[in-house]
Design a protein around this nucleic acid. Structure first.
Lengths: 225, 225
DNA sequence: CACCTCTCGATTGTCTAGCAAGTACACCGA
DNA sequence: TCGGTGTACTTGCTAGACAATCGAGAGGTG
């Protein structure tokens, strides 16, 4: 039995809003009142409220007491924090995967998709790229780690969506680096994989920060040793 | 201006329920219907529902579709996962703090409280112990890392509450280890601090697993190198 | 006696309607 | 121009209700 997945109305609305924000359809700073959401999706206000709360949890919306929620505006500091936290998590994941020389077929599959996108828009590379990284984390089999990473994924995706279409990404070289990381993991070289990932993620981070007009990170937080 | 903090009704209810679960007042497996919560706190059902959802997010309650929420029952696997994930996070935090030789006064203060509890019950050591560890994480100044760690803290506290009062903890030696970790950090020895923390947390983990009737962890996941 | 089915109670999901409380902003007077 | 006031908008919370769904027990069948 295919074990089907039911989504509640609230989840469906939250998913749609999430997608619209990530597509850039709703620009940063846009106000989203509960009543707005309720009317556009033709549901009651409490339903819209619940959807809003999900997105606030995800970090895609920000809201104060009795104030309408607005689409988050990510500054250079946020981008740095997101990417550093992300690197921390993935680094440890790679080290543990390497200790058992775990192969991650799902990650290889996602990477193949990236390599196949020879001339796709930079938008198309975001989804498989996130799949690649989440596949690595999921391979650990730790529900809590997966949960924590998932809370970062939406923010990372939002970062990438902000600079999409500026030709900053070269999917061929991305795919090469990904493949190399996987090879190092299966070879048991956790430190090597972690270092390469640090470089990989760190480069993406600085690219994003520059694109957002921030000053290039003064502190090199690359390999700790 | 004292910048006062208002808590909504929902938050207040969630806080109280959280405290009751952590005190062991609500045993694992206890069913908590939305209507129950609403009537005991004399609020409307949606309010109780919102509080339930908070606790489900925290991992203190589990619930399926159209099923009443129940207090989570943590098995040996859960304890191991929680403590391992926690160790991952804290390890990286210590390494980064050590790189700048950061001193963390809040952690020292919390540790002083632990040391002062010469003959307190094991219950009393839980709160300052958690304060010690969260102070370390907060010292990093990374909102995302703090957020992720907070999502683990309640589960960790629940773990400790489950075995409290069995005389498993020796606060004097705990305080000693904590102090040593802090010293290693200010001395710039991140790897040493991380290794010591691994041992510290790992010992607590195995103690908990044994107390819960699990088999002692076969895989030693202590120092990766 | 074992097993399957079906109905029923309990619980949650969602809605309508509405009041209270808080915030932001424009307006008005000094 | 500046400061206070008022109003509109939005959220927090309540009350009551109906539909959808799940679990368990009653009841029938082999």
């Amino acid at each position: 039995m295919p074990r089907l997945q039911v989504v509640s109305v609230v989840d469906a609305i939250a998913d749609d809003l999430r997608a619209r924000i990530l597509r850039g359809e709703l620009e940063p700073g846009t106000a989203l009142t509960e009543a707005d959401i309720a009317s556009t999706y033709e549901v009651a206000r409490p339903t819209g409220k619940a959807a809003t709360e999900q997105l606030v949890r995800d970090g895609l919306l920000v809201r104060g007491n009795h104030r309408s929620a607005r689409v988050v505006e990510l500054g250079p500091d946020d981008v740095r924090d997101i990417y550093r936290t992300r690197a921390h998590l993935e680094r440890e994941v790679l080290r543990r995967l390497a200790r058992e020389r775990t192969d991650v077929p799902a990650a290889r599959a996602a990477n193949a998709e990236i390599a196949a996108l020879v001339d796709g828009s930079t938008l198309d590379v975001v989804a498989p790229d996130m799949r690649f990284h989440t596949a690595l984390v999921d391979a650990l089999g730790s529900p809590r780690t997966t949960r924590m990473y998932r809370s970062l994924v939406t923010e990372v995706t939002l970062c990438m969506a902000r600079v999409q279409g500026r030709g900053l990404l070269d999917n061929a070289s991305i795919a090469r680096e990904h493949a190399l990381i996987l090879d190092l993991v299966t070879a048991g070289d956790g430190d090597g994989a972690a270092a390469l990932l640090d470089e990989h993620v760190g480069r993406a981070r600085e690219r994003l920060v520059r694109a957002l007009g921030g000053t290039p990170g003064p502190e090199a937080d690359l390999p700790p040793r």
